[in-house]
């Protein structure tokens, strides 16, 4: 088995998420009298709409366009090669002007899309960009996008049901309305702590798969270093620091760490170079 650690952690986290969902389903059937088939069909439809809408919104929000083969032929070639290596279909490649060096993957195996920003292409050397591409392809190969949509779907369903359960068992007083909203939000946060822990771990796994595919972790580590150094030096970053200074607590400390989608860049670089 390729990632025993990932499989074990996914089994534990998946069981916890399923337990949350099972409780929510029982509440839906008990409080609202909904039949099991309706709960299941409703859940699948809810997650399906989130998946479709999320992909469409992501591509639209950055105004991504298909990556022209005549201009970026070597990126297409590398993506083709890496996809074969990972045993997936080559995803659709798109390019966008995002204002920052960035790349992300949406969709699933067989219907994936990787978007790369023009700024990232300009900033990185070819081998570094290949590392980034491999990392994004690994997300598609490992079904990470689908996993996150499922996690968010479970969190949202559990939160909505918790909210309605509080509302329907109260006296329609202002305190009941308020408690329902608060319980919904807190429930969503609690479930998402598990989903985000999965997300952080899957980043390490995607790094490891990318390193395997390109024959070493150094190019991706250099890419991460370049981007984080650029971030420290850029004027945009100074604006961000000013904004962050207004925060009561730093965004990467305390509670904020629990709600982070990515592990610290330094830790990723360290693992890639091990």
């Amino acid at each position: 088995m390729k990632h025993v650690g990932l499989t074990a952690r996914m089994a534990i986290a998946g069981s916890i998420l399923f337990a949350f969902y099972a409780v929510a389903a029982v509440v839906a059937m008990g409080v609202f009298g909904a039949p099991l088939w309706l709960v299941l069909v409703g859940s699948v439809a809810f997650v399906g709409v989130q998946y479709k809408l999320g992909k469409w919104m992501a591509l639209r929000s950055v105004r991504a366009e298909d990556m022209p083969k005549d201009q970026y032929g070597w990126i297409h070639d590398r993506a083709e090669h890496l996809s074969n290596e990972m045993g997936i279909e080559k995803p659709r490649l798109m390019v966008a002007r995002m204002g920052v060096p960035n790349a992300f993957a949406v969709g699933r195996k067989g219907a994936g899309t990787v978007v790369v920003s023009e700024e990232l292409i300009r900033l990185l050397d070819r081998d570094e960009l290949e590392g980034v591409l491999a990392h994004e392809l690994a997300h598609i190969a490992n079904r990470d996008v689908v996993m996150m949509v499922l996690g968010q779907g479970v969190a949202s369903i559990v939160a909505i049901l918790a909210q309605w359960a509080v509302l329907l068992t109260g006296d329609n007083d202002i305190a009941d309305f308020f408690l329902a909203i608060v319980v919904g939000q807190i429930t969503q946060m609690l479930v998402m702590i598990f989903v985000l822990a999965i997300s952080r771990y899957r980043e390490y796994v995607a790094d490891s798969d990318a390193a395997d595919a390109i024959g070493g972790g150094d190019p991706l580590a250099r890419a991460l270093e370049k981007i984080s150094h650029g971030n420290e030096q850029s004027s945009d970053s100074r604006v961000d620091e000013n904004v962050n200074a207004l925060c009561i607590f730093g965004q990467e400390r305390g509670l904020a760490k629990l709600f982070s989608t990515h592990p610290p860049t330094e830790k990723r670089i360290e693992r890639l170079r091990r």
Binding site: Q50, L53, G54, M57, A58, S61, V62, M98, V100, P101, N102, A103, F104, A105, V106, V115, L120, V132, V145, M148, V149, L150, G151, Q152, G153, A155, Q188, M189, M192, V195, L196, S199, A223, L224, I227, S228, G230, N231, Q251, L255, A256, L258, F259, S260, T261, H262, T265, R268
Partner: peptide, 23 residues
């Protein structure tokens, strides 16, 4: 930021706004 993330992760790619490798 954490609160917005809780509501957007899985709905839109979390890193489409920031820089690569960061939240």
């Amino acid at each position: 930021e954490a609160v917005v993330r809780v509501h957007t992760v899985g709905r839109v790619p979390g890193n489409r706004r920031g820089e690569y490798g960061d939240d």
